[in-house]
Design a protein around this nucleic acid. Structure first.
Lengths: 186, 186
DNA sequence: GTCTATAGCTAGATAGAC
DNA sequence: GTCTATCTAGCTATAGAC
């Protein structure tokens, strides 16, 4: 039982890598099978809903990461500045310093747009709210805090696009630094 | 001759709409034919290179828009603040106030990523440089100007993602306002 | 230059042996 | 639970009449 569970987590990790690099429509079952080391029929055994269920499993894992590495951290009782630094460091690792695309963005296009908009929006909202909460703890008023929360995700998503298209990961790190400045300005 | 040219421009416009909404891999020849009102074979007559050539034609049109509505404006001899306002207004119209996705982003995923990264990067670079030039005219030093230029595109791309995923076009308009503030702070 | 018809292939998804 | 083998639908792309 335990062994099976672990293996499935690994499978989901591999699926995520494929979806992230080629998108939902660009990922074929053959490619997904190849990446996981399973045959197509075996993938269908684990995910009877096919590609859609696989992507949903990936999104569940992303949602868990978001909860543990961002939400839990940013709502914790540690000093606000410590929470900020910790969260930004996790984000930097998640995207490998700007070299990896965001899986949520990869699952936001084409056929996937209609299928996964709601779960992705839920993750985005939690993310924004968590950073807005931190801003309030840092003394910003409610309106400014909301604005800062949104601006954080805007900067990260936007900088990831530029970093990868222009092949300049530095742009992502710069954005993280800009975010830090936004929060610690006073 | 003239009639044909115009019609092709219209065809490209329709192709762009499809690519924008479903992405490159998500767009089938049947769908593209349907959207343009032509049959598949007719599309291949105009674009012998198939889907790839169609997307390139779209990118050429985007590049032209970029040159005329942003680069030419931002390098003009009008007062810097006027140039900024004019450019931001064009951008707002281009994305219909945050309701439309960026075609460049739609052509950055899956199979398309490898095919079109260079032309897209060229457009991004021109965009960033043009806003950096404006920043210098507004009195910012070179390093700050470059940073502002990049930050402009970051804010727009990022806010478009959030605006569409969360179905809150306001986030895009907010980002435009933030950009204006960034440039007119002194 | 546009059409109908179709070739050739690969996609997602299943059947059934083991 | 994993495999090989296969189905059908849809894909890109082309042939050839008009």
């Amino acid at each position: 039982m335990a062994t099976v569970k672990v293996e499935t987590d690994v499978v989901i990790e591999r699926l995520m890598e494929v979806f992230r690099s080629v998108g939902y429509d660009g990922a074929s079952m053959a490619q997904l099978a190849d990446a996981t080391g399973l045959q197509k029929a075996s993938l269908y055994h684990r995910f009877p809903g096919g590609k859609q269920e696989m992507a949903m499993a990936v999104l569940d894992q992303v949602s868990e990461w978001n909860q543990r590495q961002l939400v839990d951290v940013l709502y914790s009782s540690a000093p606000p500045k410590t929470r900020l630094i910790t969260a930004l460091r996790s984000i930097s690792q998640l995207y490998d310093g700007g070299r990896l695309a965001c899986i949520l963005r990869a699952l936001s296009h084409g056929t996937a747009a209609d299928l996964f908009r709601q779960p992705i929006a839920a993750i985005f909202t939690k993310w924004v709210d968590a950073f807005a909460h931190l801003a309030q703890d840092l003394g910003f008023d409610q309106q400014t805090s909301r604005h800062l929360g949104g601006s954080t995700l805007v900067r990260i998503q936007g900088s990831l696009i530029l970093a990868q298209t222009l092949n300049q990961p530095t742009l992502f790190e710069q954005a993280l630094h800009d975010i830090e400045t936004d929060f610690l300005i006073n």
